[in-house]
Write a protein that binds this DNA or RNA. Structure first.
Lengths: 112, 112
DNA sequence: TCCGTAGTTCAATATCATCGAACTATTGAG
DNA sequence: CTCAATAGTTCGATGATATTGAACTACGGA
């Protein structure tokens, strides 16, 4: 067993950390993909292709520590889930507005 | 005359840059203060006390380049104004949600 | 003209991000 | 059980960015 992932209690997460996590194009894209798919995604699926795995790991760690995702080991892979509802309750409107803006910024339409 | 400040056209500003600018505690506080006051503020007034001026300058530059404020020289001081309306039009809900969250995060109630 | 105020620029150091290489854990095949 | 493949993690080095003191610029007032 590897050392388990740590997920901060929702009431301890900081707005600055959430914004910081989402300020990176790669991380914003990860969150956007998980959100668009509507279901948990493993690390490789959510991250852009051709991105080194060590860099991916780093980004997932930051998203986790910011309180935006939970990560769970499922056999050989790690499944990541948005903590949307919790975050939305703590910082109302923040995530939803950012996700809408990110969706528009990408394409006129996306089957999402 | 010093070299004038550059303000990006609103349609060119990037969501990531906006989030990045607001992800820093100092910059978030600056924006919060200008917003709370409801009127333009000079650099020293909006930034936390005891922060070196060179650091302040740096933060204002980032806020400007992100498209969040306009800066204008008025005699010896620089007056900073939020571009809230424009930003809100470009990324609906983003700034307002973040400002609300920041206000709550600071104090139970703030006259804002 | 000289001084004080407000802010900028520069250069040095400290902090953080990226990525290849080596490693760990788990699953499935033989 | 052993071997190999898959999915991620950890480590170390390098490059980028933040912070800050010191020197500088610009303006307004005595």
């Amino acid at each position: 067993m590897q050392r388990p992932f740590l997920h901060p209690p929702i009431e301890t997460i900081k707005l600055e950390s959430v914004l910081y996590a989402l300020a990176d194009p790669v991380r914003l894209e990860i969150i956007r993909r998980i959100s668009a798919g509507g279901c948990p995604l493993n690390c490789s699926a959510a991250a852009p292709d051709n991105l080194p795995k060590s860099t991916q790991s780093h980004h997932y760690q930051i998203l986790r520590e910011a309180g935006l995702i939970t990560s769970e080991r499922r056999g050989t892979e790690v499944v990541n889930t948005l903590r949307c509802a919790e975050v939305e309750k703590r910082f109302p409107g923040v995530i939803s507005a950012i996700l809408s803006a990110a969706a528009v910024a990408r394409k006129p339409e996306c089957k999402s």
